[in-house]
């Protein structure tokens, strides 16, 4: 599939994933869910799973698969939605999100059969492990890449920078990180809590940096990912993708209250109505 063919396919998957996020989050009832940070990174996750990564849901531990680590583990709805749409587990499983004994906890567990590569959610940790995985790929002379999504708030964590400097030192150009720059973190706007010039900092740490002005535009995301995927610059890569927190559901967009919250029946119905109206070709995947 060339990029022009891939774009509508990924857009369709992204729309379905957004709908899945709402279904999962609603099924968690009063436990609520991290809607905002999941919806912001949907296009990035969809582009990876349905346009960039080599993977096979029938053989989840395929040796030459590209590795995916969702370091911002609280956005697990986006991850689970991609795994459902790709066929890693049955749609019914999706509705067990946060239920007793479910594999789908509020932050991902390590469960390779479900395509869940690394337990994440303790911020900084998934990214640092992804760097080690990329190192192993180099050591073993394997050709796959390691993809990792971080939150912009997550970049406050010291461990991110311990790992970033070590990745650059070891020339891990098989590592492609994406910072989901939705400009919010738990307690407020990122520029108010810790105003980081992410582009300058990542560059200073020796990374190839690419800015994507609209991280919710599949074409922009896909172009950036494909460029970095094929680059053998000797430097690790990071895409800083400017996204919209809560993208796709009007009352969640740029609204910190929806960083994590339970979804009422009324809000659920409104979200579903809005998303169904946005579906590519008017088709619903629900």
């Amino acid at each position: 599939m060339n990029q022009n063919e891939a774009i509508p396919f990924i857009q369709e998957k992204a729309a379905a994933m957004r709908r899945d996020c709402i279904e999962m989050g609603y099924s968690a009832g009063n436990h609520g869910a991290h809607f905002g940070p999941a919806l912001s990174c949907i296009e990035v996750v969809a582009s990876l799973f349905f346009g960039v990564m080599n993977h096979n849901p029938q053989v989840p531990s395929m040796a030459n698969r590209d590795r995916f680590v969702l370091s911002k583990g609280h956005a697990c709805l986006a991850y689970y939605a991609a795994l459902v749409e790709a066929g890693y587990f049955a749609r019914e499983v999706m509705y067990t999100f946060k239920h007793d004994n479910s594999y789908l906890s509020g932050h991902p567990i390590c469960h390779p059969e479900y395509g869940l590569e690394v337990a994440s959610g303790s911020l900084g940790n998934g990214f640092a492990v992804a760097c080690g995985m990329a190192m192993a790929g180099k050591v073993k002379k394997e050709s796959h890449n390691v993809y990792c999504i971080l939150g912009d708030g997550e970049c406050d964590e010291g461990l991110v920078w311990e790992a970033a400097m070590n990745a650059a030192k070891n020339e891990l150009d098989n590592l492609i990180a994406v910072v989901d720059r939705n400009s919010f973190q738990l307690a407020g706007k990122t520029h108010e809590i810790m105003n980081l010039n992410l582009e300058a900092i990542w560059k200073a740490f020796g990374w190839d940096v690419q800015m994507v002005a609209d991280g919710n535009d599949v074409q922009s995301v896909l172009t950036a990912l494909n460029e970095m995927k094929n680059s053998k610059s000797g430097r690790p890569h990071v895409i800083i993708a400017k996204t919209l927190k809560g993208k796709g559901v009007s009352f969640m967009e740029n609204n910190l209250a929806w960083h994590a919250a339970p979804l009422s029946k009324i809000n659920y119905e409104q979200a579903v109505t809005e998303l169904d109206a946005q579906q590519v070709g008017g088709q619903s995947n629900a």
Binding site: V129, G132, M135
Partner: peptide, 12 residues
Amino acid sequence: QNLIDFTAGMAK
């Protein structure tokens, strides 16, 4: 911290 995570990634 990164010592443990880096080696954990390799162990993975």
